[in-house]
Computed example of a mutant assay.
Amino acid sequence: MRVPDASAPDRVTVLLVDDRPENLLALEAILQGLGHRLLRAGSGEEALKHLLVEEVSLILLDVQMPGMDGFETAEHIKGREKTRDIPIVFLTALEAGGHQAFRGYAAGAVDYLAKPFDPWVLRAKVGVLVELHEERRALQRERDHLRRRAQQEAQEALALLRRAEDAAAGAPLEVADRLRVPLAELREHLLARRP
């Protein structure tokens, strides 16, 4: 697992959400050596506001918070197209029994850790989940690039076809008649394959 350069401008952001400042401080102390940018939120509402403007790679989310609890916050996060793919790890002082853990997973969490948790386990999980999320983002950027390239190539092919059709229209009648059907078929084929 690679450790990101803390001075790199493109380092990833991990959103820490907990209503207790001492818990946020403890999370920062545990994660500081990973080189990620750590962003704090003291409530579910504040977390959602951050997610409107920040690009986040992982969310560590407390379950028990006044107002909007962690489960509700996760449902809002997973309900937004921009944020639905961000992995969420629930952290809770509640008994991590089957019902609470199931509720966490049902809300979209990728993991559920009961406090007190082993700091080394949390660091390892954060490292792996951030790396997986960043690899997924890189694949999405590559897909988007390939899609744009295919669209550009399709537009160029259609432009060439238009020029061929124009040239065929100016050709002698016998040549134009022989080219009309193949050019029409080529146009249909290109239009059908356009991304």
Rank of each mutant, 00 (worst) to 15 (best):
R2Q: 11
P4Q: 00
A6S: 10
A6W: 06
A8T: 12
D10A: 07
D10W: 06
V12W: 07
V12A: 14
V12P: 08
T13K: 12
V14E: 05
L15T: 07
D18T: 05
D19F: 02
R20A: 12
R20T: 15
P21A: 02
L24I: 03
L24E: 10
L24R: 00
L24W: 09
L25Y: 15
A29K: 10
Q32M: 06
H36T: 10
L38T: 08
L38Q: 09
R40Q: 13
A41V: 12
S43T: 07
S43M: 13
A47D: 10
L48F: 12
K49G: 05
L52P: 11
E54D: 15
E55R: 14
L61D: 04
V63M: 03
Q64M: 15
M65A: 11
G67D: 01
G70H: 01
F71T: 00
E72N: 03
A74D: 00
E75L: 05
H76E: 06
H76Y: 10
E81Q: 13
K82R: 15
K82T: 15
P87C: 08
I88Q: 01
V89N: 03
F90V: 14
A96V: 06
G97Q: 04
G97R: 05
H99Q: 15
H99M: 12
Q100M: 00
G104I: 03
A107S: 11
V110T: 15
D111T: 14
D111W: 03
K115H: 05
K115G: 12
D118K: 10
R123T: 09
V130G: 09
R136S: 04
R141H: 07
R143G: 07
H145G: 09
R147Y: 15
E153T: 00
A157H: 00
R162C: 10
A164I: 06
E165Q: 13
E165W: 05
A168G: 14
A169Q: 08
E174N: 09
D177K: 14
R178V: 14
R178Q: 13
V181W: 05
L183I: 09
A184F: 01
A184V: 03
A184E: 12
E185P: 02
L186W: 03
E188H: 11
E188W: 01
L190D: 00
P195Y: 08
P195M: 06
P195E: 00
